[in-house]
């Protein structure tokens, strides 16, 4: 039992580390480690992964919020979309062929990984055309922000809020349908569509995924998916990893982070497509 717990702890540290760097949560690592690596039933794996997502989110966010990297207002606004999407997703899960969704989602993620790699040299992905002024309502929300990067203060604007909001509903539906993977969609929506800086997208996604996960945690707990012996090393490992990841994100160059993101999201894409096909 000791070795089992030790392996889980190390795997969880890696999950928390990558999760807090990329804004993806820890499920990408935890689920395959438990199911393929240790022969644990998928239901326990999902419950444990959910716990790991909450731990990554709160651990990383405690640092990112204090440093002002998280855009709290944008995060709160988009949470109305992701949480209602998640409820919708969970409600229609029984009627939808989730395998097809997994394959489609995998393709989208693969494309996003490629896109992240292509844009690795920029902090903010430039809009395709000159963006018109936001309307009065969006202005009154005061979403635009700035953050301290190693090279100085970077100010940014929040663009394409309508499309971003729509994508967040989709992200919520996907997390309700599949239980995992919504962090990836959140980062992509903020980074490529809303044109937030990569670090802000990652930190804000981290901030948001904890709430989405907590919303479904009650159900998983009463269904008996959350096992204490599996969760114990995962919580501790993920917290240690996520705090370390948060320290590193603040110092790293965006280029490196985008490359790490591209790799992790491609892995997630293959995982999704594999699960969808088999």
């Amino acid at each position: 039992m000791g070795i089992f717990v030790a392996i889980l702890f190390v795997g969880a540290m890696l999950a928390g580390f990558l999760g807090s760097l990329t804004g993806l949560g820890g499920g990408v690592i935890i689920v395959p480690l438990l199911t393929l690596g240790m022969g644990v039933d998928i239901k326990y794996a999902i419950g444990t992964s959910l716990v790991s997502v909450i731990a990554t989110s709160s651990g990383a966010a405690s640092a990112y919020v204090r440093e002002g990297i998280t855009n709290i207002k944008t995060g709160m606004l988009l949470e109305t979309a992701t949480t209602s999407g998640a409820i919708l997703g969970a409600a229609i899960a029984v009627m939808i062929p989730t395998n097809t969704i997994m394959i489609l989602f995998g393709i989208v993620l693969l494309y996003s990984g490629f896109n992240s790699f292509k844009n690795r040299k920029v902090e903010i992905i430039p809009p395709r055309k000159v963006h018109k002024e936001n309307n009065k309502f969006i202005k009154s929300l005061q979403l635009d922000g700035d953050y301290k990067s190693p090279t100085g203060k970077i100010s940014y604007r929040v663009l394409n809020l309508g499309w971003g909001y729509l994508l967040m509903i989709v992200a919520g539906v996907i997390s309700g349908l599949l239980g995992i993977g919504s962090g990836a969609f959140k980062v992509v929506a903020m980074d490529s569509v809303m044109k937030l800086p990569f670090k802000v997208s990652s930190a804000t996604s981290n901030f948001m995924i904890g709430v989405t996960a907590a919303a479904s945690a009650g159900v998983y707990l009463t269904r008996g998916y959350i096992d204490p012996v599996l969760s114990m090393p995962v919580v501790l490992g993920v917290l240690a990893g996520s705090l370390l990841g948060a320290k590193i994100l603040m110092k790293s160059k965006t280029k490196r982070l985008r490359v790490v993101f591209a790799i992790v999201i491609s892995l997630l894409a293959f995982e999704m497509m594999y699960n969808g096909i088999f």
Binding site: S58, A61, G210, V211, A213, A214, P228, V229, S231
Partner: peptide, 21 residues
Amino acid sequence: KSRAVIQFGILILIATPVLRV
């Protein structure tokens, strides 16, 4: 009871984002 103590820790973890909101 050890496993209940761990589960209690998990409950605190789940409550954290709720309190944050």
